[in-house]
Amino acid sequence: MSFRKTMIGASVALFLFYFTLLLSLLFFFGAKGFWEVFLHPSTLFSIRLSLVAATLATLLAVVVGLPAAYALSRFEFPGKHVLDTFLEIPMIISPIALGAALLVFFNTPLGTLIQTKGIYFVFEVPGIILAQFASVAGLATRLMKASLDEIAPRYEAVARSLGLSPWLAFYKVTLPLSLRGLTASIILSWAKAVGEFGATVTLAGAMPGKTETLPVAIFLALGSANVERAVVLILILAFLGLITLYAVRLTGKRYHDD
């Protein structure tokens, strides 16, 4: 078999693997049952909770991650490489371990103080947001850093020599130039937050009607042998994911470097 055919064959095999998985869901699928499950108040609650929590978690990740990504992309400072490595923690440890670490943290004196004097996270909705934030912040920072790395620092150097402060140079030059990459990073992070399960279920629990995000709802449906509900929820999640990826492809136009 030729080199070209082998490579393309591998990509087709991978596609068929995922496509078969999705197709197998239809084995349990009935059109009438779909709408019944989809329009059920508990499903709508899960969709709403997932979307709101993921949006807030992603927003937080961007607020903290964008300056961090900029610093990692542009500056040299002591401990930069340690910091950079730490960003990968959510990617290398299991999400359950991440959630467990959060749970343990809220049993320390500082964690207890935060809970009693501030916001309750354990087995509460803010816990979902925090778990999703912990899960996606590192990834969001990494992706945004990659987008900023693509923009040569010379643009900012020129903008500053022409009279802009560093804040304005970032706002008027670097931000518009990296907008496509940043938008794609944010959308991908949001998609990951929507699908987050391990850390969420460990910190916020799996309480129907309270902390029941879409992945948690799938887990609960399977636990109670309600396969049809689980299938519908999986399809909603898959649909959201595909829409997100399509949005990434459509984001903004790319400026050509001169």
């Binding site: 643009y155 150097a157 020129v158 903008a159 020599s161 402060s165 030059v173």
Partner: peptide, 30 residues
């Protein structure tokens, strides 16, 4: 002083024209 206070204009080797701005806006940028 920071660069923006020095009244220096810089033309790098690769020019770094702002690709998202039209020629007119590049010229009047400073």
């Amino acid at each position: 002083l920071p660069p923006e206070k020095r009244e220096i204009s810089y033309v790098p080797q690769d020019l770094a024209l702002f690709p998202h701005l039209r020629v007119r806006d590049n010229i009047f940028f400073g």
